[in-house]
């Protein structure tokens, strides 16, 4: 464990909790892409199946359980409890265009051709693009609530911090995982445009709205 990984994990946790609280407190999931949240629930489920096969640490197990639990809770709030506030018309990204190619890629490029490994790889690839429905929704409506932008910032920072973690691990442990690194780079690049808007607008007290 190094500082980048710990802050990355905490940033990820903060993102998940910010989103849950936003929906819970406002009793509304307006502006939130249910499709992205379903993809994240799939990502956690596919990746953390090793909870059943191997124990790594109390930290590792508890974080995995919290991530999975929160992911399903979020999906439940969007599609069941506060379904009436879900903006399905604007959440029109075609997720099959992500899931199918990503599934194919996971079968083709993985560390070991075994079900658990392919699912792990699938989750890494899928996570890197799972935010696209959310970003697509924002580009479609042209705006996002400030609390939603804080969520996106924490979520983007998490993988960015992991990139530093991987540099650290390569340097000090001689360890690197090409699949995670390439996918993590893709994931971080997808947030660059948003990071720019967050720093130039939201941090200066303005609402995030895109030019028409």
């Amino acid at each position: 464990m190094n500082i980048f990984r710990l802050t990355g994990d905490l940033s990820h946790l903060a993102a998940i909790i910010i989103l849950l609280l936003k929906i819970w407190k406002s009793r509304s999931c307006a502006g939130i892409s249910g499709k992205s949240q379903i993809l994240f629930a799939i990502v956690f489920t596919a990746r953390y199946l090793d909870l059943l096969t191997s124990f790594i640490s109390v930290y590792n197990t508890s974080m995995k359980v919290i991530y999975i639990g929160c992911a399903y809770a979020t999906v439940y709030l969007i599609y069941a409890k506060f379904r009436a506030t879900y903006d399905g018309n604007h959440d029109s990204f075609r997720v099959e265009f992500l899931v199918v190619p990503v599934g194919g890629l996971a079968v083709l490029i993985n560390h070991t051709f075994s079900p658990l490994e392919i699912l792990w790889t699938f989750s890494i690839y899928l996570e890197s693009v799972a935010i696209l429905p959310q970003l697509f929704m924002i580009s479609k409506t042209g705006e996002a609530e400030t609390i939603t932008t804080h969520y996106l910032f924490c979520l983007g920072m998490y993988r960015t911090l992991y990139l530093f973690n991987w540099v650290w691990r390569f340097y000090f442990e001689g360890f690197f995982d090409m699949i995670a690194i390439v996918a993590g780079l893709v994931q971080t690049v997808l947030y660059c445009d948003f990071f720019y808007l967050y720093v130039t607008k939201v941090l200066k007290g303005k609402k995030l709205s895109l030019p028409a």
Binding site: R5, D9, H12, D50, S54, I56, S57, N60, M63, K64, Y67, H111, W120, Y162, N165, E173, F175, D177, A180
Partner: peptide, 10 residues
């Protein structure tokens, strides 16, 4: 082993 190192990340 390498797989273990990889799997301790979240």
């Amino acid at each position: 082993k390498e797989q273990k190192k990889r799997k301790d990340e979240l």
